[in-house]
Design a protein around this nucleic acid. Structure first.
Lengths: 111, 111
DNA sequence: AGTTATGTATAAGAATCTTATGTATATTTG
DNA sequence: CAAATATACATAAGATTCTTATACATAACT
């Protein structure tokens, strides 16, 4: 998704957070949204996104709903009830992670 | 290194930052230092650490120096000149990454 | 007419990490 | 004193995640 290896492992959290915020989204929409929010910093590739979405669906985190718009297929994903709960955990983990990395990189400061 | 997948890809940056700060360190020392700094949050496994050190050495980022202390072997690693330069880049990448993740998770706030 | 944008999908390979195992010495604990 | 824990390095098999390439299809722009 980026030249930097750091983004590895963060895709699921990103997807879940966006869905929590926007209710339902389709794959292509997610890629564009992330690109916009990060001002081009982060480009999610399809090869990473679609398998991730399928896996989250298989795990019961996401529900899917197919629509046809302008004669093109769209698969809208939204969080299940379990997915909504899990998102809370994932976001807490992300905050812990960021705090931990800050403490490693900036050991002098308090956060 | 942790139950959370988020730490994937951050090991190299962590190693390089610690070596930048402490001059030279050996593997086991790194694992203990990280555990201490993060108050147990992050435990680097040997299966991740040693291959990472070997690779950084092969890439010319690290130099190695073997010592024998208390009849036990220690391999001290330190940044090469190129490694020191690269560390600057990696830390900048980490800050960008953290900022980007913040903007995704906390889109209302400014950073 | 050809390129770009929209939209989803998968497969091969790379990279990173987990888990398990192996070797060896020193120290602590029951 | 024997056993467990700590110190110290190493690798191999497998899991997971991602990149890169490819594939299909329609819409819009140039």
């Amino acid at each position: 998704m980026k030249n930097s290896q750091l983004y590895k492992g963060s895709l699921n959290t990103i997807i879940m957070k966006l869905l929590e915020e926007n209710g339902k989204m389709y794959g292509y929409e997610i890629t564009q949204k992330v690109k916009a929010i990060t001002q081009g910093e982060l480009n999610i590739t399809e090869g990473a996104l679609y398998p991730a979405l399928h896996k989250l669906e298989a795990e019961g985190i996401l529900d899917v709903e197919i629509e046809k718009v302008d004669n093109r297929m769209r698969k809208y994903y939204k969080l299940t009830e379990a997915g909504t709960k899990e998102t809370v955990n994932r976001l807490a983990e992300l905050e812990d992670f960021i705090r931990t990395m800050q403490s490693l990189v900036n050991p002098k400061l308090e956060f």
